[in-house]
Design a binder for these strands. Structure first.
Lengths: 147, 147
DNA sequence: GTGTTTGCAAACGTTTTGCACAGGT
DNA sequence: ACCTGTGCAAAACGTTTGCAAACAC
């Protein structure tokens, strides 16, 4: 839902969107901050957050509020799902998302009017599957099972 | 995965679990803190957090890390899904959870070994459906669409 | 010129942690 | 006696906000 407010195309805003669209890594605000700072050394973290909010409002970026972790951002706004690696914490897109095997309508909705759902998968990424049990859980902490 | 550590049945731990099992409201740590404090006036919030962590580790409580909100806790450990009301913020259980209409296996998993998924629904609770557009979004802030 | 946006720093809400002491086993 | 668990307070973390100055339009 694009806001009706007048937006200004500041260099900060453009570089943020540009950086976000240039990666498939779903960066956090802090990671984006580091990336943008390389081009605009004087940006502040507050500016990153404010612009991400604006860009989200206007439909240019997606917010990925994955369970138990900082918010990540996605320059691809088309609907798709995500997987998180419980070992290294990386987040990847799932291709071929809405499929006949992926039907998500509760049968009994407890009287709620269901407007949508949020679905995320977790598991081991290709890299972390290579028999290495002793791998450090790096970027983010892994979760304890359950869904 | 119950830890192999020796646990002590302290009054604090028991009251916390008792309070959690006595409600269907999926309280936050702060709400639980208030409830437990009525019975044990000297508990600290730190104790609540530490015990919830232990109880979670031992499989007695479920952690509900719903997108963009504080963690809530659930005394019912059997697998089931949840709905959040985007207006008042309340969280309810979804009965009849794993159904033929609720199949969640990605067709293409991008090379990940999928261990599970997290699924949450959002919409309007029965109370908030009663034509009251002007209702205050109270307990927690509502979300901006997208899934 | 007007009103949005910026940088900075301080504040926020939630959760975690360090510590000395209390208390279960 | 041992070592887990407690209360307290402070810190950590990600995020938001107030403000005066800067700047896009």
């Amino acid at each position: 839902m694009p806001s009706n407010k007048i937006r200004r195309n500041t260099p900060q805003r453009m570089v943020i969107l540009q950086e976000l669209c240039a990666t498939k890594e779903h960066p956090t605000a802090a990671e984006l901050f580091a990336a943008v700072r390389r081009k605009l050394p004087r940006v502040s973290l507050g500016t990153i957050y404010r612009n991400l909010e604006v860009l989200h409002e206007d439909g240019f970026v997606r917010k990925l509020e994955l369970a138990g972790h900082e918010t990540r951002f996605d320059g691809t706004t088309a609907p798709h799902y995500h997987v998180r690696c419980t070992s290294c914490g990386c987040v990847r897109d799932l291709p071929a998302p809405l499929h006949d095997k992926l039907v998500t309508q509760p049968v009994d909705s407890a009287g709620f009017r269901i407007d949508g759902h949020r679905l995320e998968f977790y598991g081991l990424c290709p890299g972390c599957q290579q028999g290495d049990m002793g791998r450090m859980p790096v970027p983010d902490m892994p979760e304890h099972g359950s869904h």
